[in-house]
Every structure is written in C-alpha cells, then in structure tokens.
Write a protein that binds this DNA or RNA. Structure first.
Lengths: 242, 242
DNA sequence: CTTCGTTCGTTATAATAATCACAGGGCGAC
DNA sequence: GTCGCCCTGTGATTATTATAACGAACGAAG
C-alpha cells in the first residue's frame, strides 16, 4: 500500500506506519533543536539550565520542553534544572545520533553539488556514501575527499541495498523525483529527504521530509501583503501602486 | 518585545503577531502545495477535479482540503468538483502570488550562490533584488543576468529599506545569523527564510521559516534505528554489529 | 533540623486541528 | 420533470497538541 508523503511535513497526522509509536511526531521533530541548542550552550561553558531558560533560547514554553522530555525519561533535577552535557547526550541517544549514517545523494546538478559541499552536512553525523545522476556526462566524476564516484541512477537500487544505505536525499528536478523515490525505496531506503517540489508517493513505511523553500516563501507572502500590498517600491526608484 | 522563531516551523502555536488572524497558520502553509499541484494538473490538460482526487494527489484527506478552502470562500461545484484553473488562481490571489516579490539574499558562499542559481527560485515569483556578504573579497561581484552587485553587509538595513524589500533570505554561517536577522529587521524586512541552524530571535511581527536539513535527517533517524540498529552494512563490505 | 526558593515531572485543562457525516445543490439520463 | 448519483460546504465530533497548575524533590542558608 502506498500513501503520499505529508504536506510540507507540517502538522499533518501521520497515518504512516513509521510513526505509529506512542510518541507524537512533533515531539521527535523538536528534539534535534533541543540537542543543537544544548550543544551551543555547552560550548559556551554553561553546565546546566532550567527548562525556563532553555525555553527562552529555543522559543517554546518551558512546559513543552519538560513535557517533551518526559516521554523519554527523567533527565532533570528539581531545583537545579538539566545537566546540559547529559541531556544532550540523552537526546542524541534517543535520536540515534551516536552512530554515523550513510546517505545516498541522487542528483548532482547545482543543488546536489551544493548539498555535497554543505558544511552543515560535513560536520554532521550524516555521510554521503554514494552519489547518483542520470546525466551521463557526470557519471564517473570523482567527488570529495573520499573519492566518491558519481554513479548512473540505474544502479541506485542495487548499490544502495548492497551497502545497506537507509537514507536518501532527492535533489533531482521535479519531473524525476517520483521515479527516483521509487528506485531508492526499491533499494530498501526508508527515509527520504526530498528537495524536489513534488509530493512523493511512497509506502507508509517510508519516512519523508520535504524541503521546499518556495512553498515557505509563498506561505509568508500571505501575511506580507496585509500590510505591504498597496505601495511597493522597486529598485528602480519608482513606486508601484497596484 | 522579542520572541524567538518557532521551532523548525512545525505545528507550534504561533503566538506571533503576524499570524493573529482567524485562519490557522497550518492552513496557510498547505495552500502553496495545493496551488502547485493544481498547476501540475492543469499542465496535464485536466480541467477539474474533486476534493477526493486532489486529496489523493497531495496525500491529505478530502475533508481537509474542503475545510481549508472554506476558510476563504466557496470555490467548488457540487457534483462537479473544482475548476482547476480557477481554484489555482484563487489560491494564488489569497497568497498574494500575483505580484513579484523582491528578496534580499544575505550570504554569498556556497549556499547563497546555490540559492541564487536555483531554478526553482528563478522560475518563481520571487526575485533576488539584492545580495550581501561580509567577505570583502566577494563585494562588488557582478551576479546574474541583471548584473547585481554583491554589497557589504553593513548596507543591509539601508539598501533593503530604501528599496522596500520585505523578504530576506539568511544564508550565512550560524554564528552570523542572529546579527544578520537584526540588520534585515532594521531594514523593515518582515519575512525571513532562514537557512542557518539557529533559532532566530526576532520581533513578534516578523515571520520566520527555517530550512534545516540536518534537523530533518536527525528526526528521521529516530524511526530508522528501531529496525536497523543492529546490523549496519558498510560500503567496505563488512558488517558492523553494534 | 527546618525553612525557603527553585524547578522538575505529571495530571488536568484548554486550545487547535483533523475527521466524520450529512443536508442540499447540480447535472445527466430517461 | 424527477430520479439517482456525485460532490461540496459545514456543523458536530473526535483526536491531537499545548498550556497551566501543582505536589514533591532538592539544595542552600541559618
């Protein structure tokens, strides 16, 4: 059975099988932000923090943080707050961030190359272990420090399943995204990070996250125009009153 | 008063002033996907569609689509469904997508350059109208078809406010993101698309959307390991049983 | 040893969002 | 016309998520 991935990964009820746990998916999505914030605090030499102060840093309520964490255990001390190093480690353990995760990148155009070079990735616990493209002129390129070859996309399923890669990044044009998703799924990939502006149809067991900057901008202009519709100054100096 | 932007732009209740309308923000976030899907259908020569069929395409329920649209009016016909061209136009009107929006891009490293080149942007109704960087070696670069100059970031507030730019894209390293946000806000920008992995502290009146691929991956590995923790095949052919 | 201020974990409550379900409009067939 | 089917829009209901509130734990100070 196939169901399409949730819209822009917003609140949408995940009827999906990967999230049938008792812990709400929204909570899981907040954990990486908690972990990252704790890392920052730790690097500033701070040893512990109350849910209140942490909440201020992150922009949520203290109750939400305490509630979120309570799904997983009791990590704080009354009167004291949370030990930052310990809580960070706990969250990373919960999210399985203590291991490195191999990732397959499909699409090596501008976007794919930018992803491959992105410092955030290089510094993370995710490692691009295979790169694919359908453009024969790109096949065989040597990429990065570990000399990765760009492989033809027909090999996705075979290579990915052979290497046990469970995470795929889709950085292909919209028209090729669904096909790409299917090839990755055929190779037993169960998590997809999708940069293509399409709603992927994948089995319920596959977890999808969409990165969709245009949709984000478009959802913001809804609010924008409430105030800025009538007079819009352009860079040519003229004023455009529609 | 300043509040930090909501976590990863997930469900979080928007206490923020920009969203104090009666229409839920989650609904607004779905509209761009509806619009895009309708565009695709239209380009396939389909003239109208029922909420049921549209729901299948998008991966939501039909009731949700009907309910979402009902916030804005009555666009369908009983027994017939929605006229695709008309509904698409209505949604674009609601989202203020009928005008072009000038955008300021801050940060012209790998990421910023990839954004500037990204086809999705070029084809959208958003137009990069100013580019800033703090690296003096990049200042003065001529960029793109319209010969944009890369400007020093001290000029952000001045240039952005003078040109009436209301949308900013933050593509700077994490450590510079907060300062960048402040400069943009000082220039009267009211919508921020933030690629930096930090929670921005901005006034309630400013709308922020975060793009955070690492956080997305990290939230997916929570589910992954449930099944794939014990045996993790590496590309070297060995099997790593932790 | 007791008191006091602090802060957690958790239960109870409120707010939000999604779904159900159905009345009624619309259209084609006959 | 009227029957039957399809499909919308929306009130009612349920599910989910966030917030509030508070008892109990901890530690410092006297």
């Amino acid at each position: 059975m196939t169901s399409s991935a949730n819209i822009a990964n917003t609140t949408n009820t995940p009827i999906t099988a990967f999230a049938d746990s008792e812990i709400p998916e929204v909570v899981i999505r907040r954990l990486p932000i908690y972990a990252r914030t704790l890392d920052t605090l730790l690097s500033q030499g701070i040893g512990n923090i109350s849910s209140n102060d942490l909440a201020d840093q992150i922009g949520v309520t203290a109750a939400q943080i305490r509630r979120d964490l309570s799904y997983f255990g009791r990590f704080g001390k009354q009167g004291k707050g949370y030990d930052i190093a310990m809580l960070g480690a706990e969250i990373r353990r919960i999210l399985n961030l203590n291991q490195h995760w191999d990732v397959a990148l499909v699409g090596f155009g501008h976007l794919g190359q930018a992803i491959a070079r992105y410092r955030g990735f290089l510094e993370s616990n995710f490692h691009i272990a295979a790169i694919f493209d359908d453009d024969s002129s790109k096949i065989g390129w040597r990429v990065g420090a570990d000399g990765l070859d760009v492989l033809p996309d027909e090999q996705i399923a075979e290579v990915v399943s052979q290497r046990g890669i469970k995470i795929g990044i889709i950085a292909v044009p919209a028209h090729a995204a669904q096909k790409t998703a299917e090839m990755l799924v055929a190779g037993q990939v169960v998590a997809l990070l999708n940069y293509a502006p399409v709603v992927l149809q994948v089995p319920d067991s596959v977890c999808v996250r969409d990165i969709d900057p245009i949709a984000m901008l478009q959802s913001m202009t809804y609010y924008l125009d409430k105030t800025y519709h009538h007079v819009h100054a352009h860079s040519n100096g003229f004023v455009d009153d529609d």
